[in-house]
Amino acid sequence: MSLLWIGVIAASLGTFVLKWLGYQVPPDVLERPRIARITALLPIALLGALVATQGFTDGQAIVLDARVAGLAVAAVLLALRAPFLVVVVAAALAAAGLRMLGWG
């Protein structure tokens, strides 16, 4: 079995266990203010980091290419409250269009 398969299965089962645990742990643990704040901020930090790495890096290099235009289009559409699918498709089209014109 390839390493990728092991990762897919382990991370999938792990994600299920995280969901299941929510129904098992006594609620007072997560009501502690600091733990509650960290768990609320964790997805925000991770998503911020994922936008940055997916948008501006290639391997270990920081690059600016057509993805920047895709992200800009996405930000404008999100501010206009466009649906998720519209945002994602428009970002892809913007980047693909620029590349077709020979930039990025």
Binding site: G55, A69, G70, F84, V88, A92, M100
Partner: peptide, 26 residues
């Protein structure tokens, strides 16, 4: 890349993040 799928992934993360940015701290 030619289909802009890398930009689509970045946009997907931004779209998941967006509704959580209501407060300055976030």
């Amino acid at each position: 890349g030619a289909w802009g799928l890398d930009a689509a992934a970045a946009a997907a993360f931004l779209a998941l993040l967006w509704p959580r940015l209501r407060r300055a701290e976030a």
